[in-house]
Structure formats: structure tokens, C-alpha cells
């Protein structure tokens, strides 16, 4: 008597068995895929290494600082024009970074402007308003060295990035270094901003102290300082956005990995999740 499978198993049974097998295989496949994903293995091949983007913040900082240094050296910081004492004519002066270099000589009338807010009918004690002409010669020098410091910072960070390409530091250490670098830049920029803000204070003082000033038509212009202030504010903004970018990158990285959570990770469960 021949004994075939067909005799024992009817069609329905076979079909059920086939479908059952298929479903089981599917489930196993899904589980396997899930397990691979959880264990950080890419299904399409080996896991891609996270590329560290060559951040141009160092180059950006060097370029911007060099432009600012150029402005500081070449362009006049401020222009002051004021009437002299009664019936003695006008006096004007440019404030440059290097005072000695641009000294106009004893014959020039600008030397007579000692106090910007020189009061009318000034006697011997006429410097009670402060802020002499010479006070404006210190900020250009400070800002010059400040921008040189920024250039050095940019070079350091550029070098670090180049070393990182060869030594391949960890992603986290790279981000921390980058953040420290941007933080130092913010601090330096803020200090330079404080130094430059002296020039802006003058406008308010001129507006308020108008009746006490000798000249009726005193002119104080500082377009370069305005440009520098906006550049510094821009650098601060960029550095803060770099800090935010770094933070968000770490946040994304944690979302992807989710392995370094401060608490226990319950990698477990029946439905396809591994239990540890």
C-alpha cells in the first residue's frame, strides 16, 4: 500500500501549514531586522561612520577678523568738527588707530580741541564733563589687539580641525572643543563691544548736553565703529548658533543611538523587542 503525504494531509491542512510557515518566517525576519536595528547594525551593509563636518567657523573668524583689522588700521574711527571759542574759527579732527602716525602738527587747529563737551564760557576748570579728546585713542588699540586674538583663535581651531582629520578624535570631544572655542570667541567679542560702545554713548550725551556745549554745530561721526559693532554682534550671533547647532547634533545623536541614557534602558519585551 502506497503511503503518500497527500493521503494523510488534505489540501486545507497543507495550505494552512504553508501560510503558517510563511507567517512564521515573516515574523522571524521582522524580529531579526528589529534586532539588527537595535544592535546598531545597518541592514543594507556595514554601519556608516558619522562624518564630522569640516566646520568653517575657524576660517570665517580669521577672514572677518582680518577685514576688521584692515578697517581699524586704514579707516578713521571718528570725525569731530566743532566751533572753537568765540570768533576763533572751526576745528576738526580725525581719530585714527595710530595717533602719532596721523599727527597733524602744532599748526593744525584740531590740536586745540581738548574736550569734546567743552562748555560755553569755560574758565580754568572746564573739564567737569569728562570724556576728553584723548579718551577715544585707546579703543582702536584695544580692538586691534582683540581682533588679532580672534585671528589666533581661528588659526588654533583650524589647526585642531586639521589634526582631527588625521588623529580622528571622538565626535563628542570634537563638539566640546568646538563649543569651548566658540565660547571664548563670544567672551572676547563682548569685551570688544564694551570698548566700542563708548563711541555710541557720545551721541546720547551730545543730544542731552546740547546747551552746555560750546559749539552750536559739533559733529561727531563714527561709521567705522558702527560697522565694527555690527560685525561683532554678528560674530556673537554666529557663535551662539554654533553652540545651538552642536547641542542639536548631540540631541540627534542621542535619539539615534539612545544607548547612553542616564537611566536603564528596558530593551525588552515579547513583541520583537529584546529583553536584557
Amino acid at each position: 500500500m502506497a503511503f503518500d503525504e497527500e493521503d494523510i494531509l488534505d489540501e486545507e491542512f497543507l495550505r494552512a501549514k504553508k501560510t503558517d510557515r510563511l507567517t512564521k518566517e515573516d515574523i522571524l525576519d521582522e524580529d531579526f531586522k528589529k534586532a539588527r536595528i537595535i544592535r546598531g547594525k545597518n541592514l543594507m551593509g556595514p554601519k556608516k561612520k558619522k562624518k564630522k563636518t569640516f566646520l568653517l567657523s575657524g576660517i570665517f573668524l580669521i577672514i572677518v577678523a582680518l577685514i576688521c583689522i584692515g578697517i581699524i588700521i586704514k579707516a578713521p574711527w571718528a570725525y569731530i568738527k566743532a566751533d572753537q571759542y568765540e570768533n576763533s574759527g572751526e576745528a576738526d579732527a580725525f581719530i585714527f588707530k595710530d595717533y602719532d602716525k596721523y599727527d597733524l602738527g602744532d599748526d593744525n587747529e584740531s590740536q586745540t580741541i581738548i574736550n569734546i563737551f567743552e562748555p560755553k564760557n569755560c574758565s580754568d576748570d572746564c573739564n567737569y564733563l569728562g570724556l576728553t579728546f584723548d579718551d577715544f585713542y585707546t579703543p582702536p588699540k584695544i580692538t586691534f589687539y582683540g581682533f588679532i586674538l580672534l585671528v589666533i583663535l581661528g588659526i588654533i581651531f583650524l589647526l585642531y580641525q586639521l589634526i582631527d582629520r588625521k588623529r580622528n578624535f571622538s565626535f563628542e570631544s570634537f563638539i566640546i572643543t568646538h563649543s569651548i572655542f566658540s565660547a571664548v570667541t563670544i567672551i572676547v567679542c563682548t569685551y570688544l563691544l564694551i570698548v566700542l560702545l563708548k563711541f555710541f554713548g557720545v551721541y546720547l550725551l551730545l543730544y542731552h548736553n546740547d546747551p552746555f556745549i560750546l559749539s552750536n554745530n559739533i559733529i561727531f561721526l563714527s561709521p567705522v565703529v558702527l560697522v565694527l559693532v555690527f560685525i561683532l554682534l554678528g560674530i556673537i550671533k554666529v557663535m551662539f548658533s554654533i553652540l545651538k547647532f552642536n547641542y542639536n547634533q548631540l540631541k540627534q545623536d542621542i535619539k539615534e543611538k539612545d544607548s547612553k541614557n542616564p537611566f536603564f534602558i528596558y530593551k525588552g519585551g515579547r513583541d520583537g523587542v529584546i529583553l536584557e
Partner: peptide, 29 residues
């Protein structure tokens, strides 16, 4: 740095109020 902090009332040579900001306050006599 910018805003005037103090206003001083003066009678001589002109009657009125003189405003001082942070920098001018430091250099005042």
C-alpha cells in the same frame, strides 16, 4: 555703557541739567 546714569543740576555758567554716562562719570572731577 550707553545710557546716562546721572544728571547734575548746574547754575554756572548756564542753568540746566548736565547728563553723565558711564564713561563721563569715570572722568568727572
Amino acid at each position: 555703557s550707553i545710557f546716562p546714569w546721572v544728571s547734575v543740576s548746574k547754575t554756572l555758567p548756564i542753568e540746566g541739567k548736565m547728563f553723565y554716562n558711564f564713561e563721563t562719570m569715570k572722568n568727572s572731577n
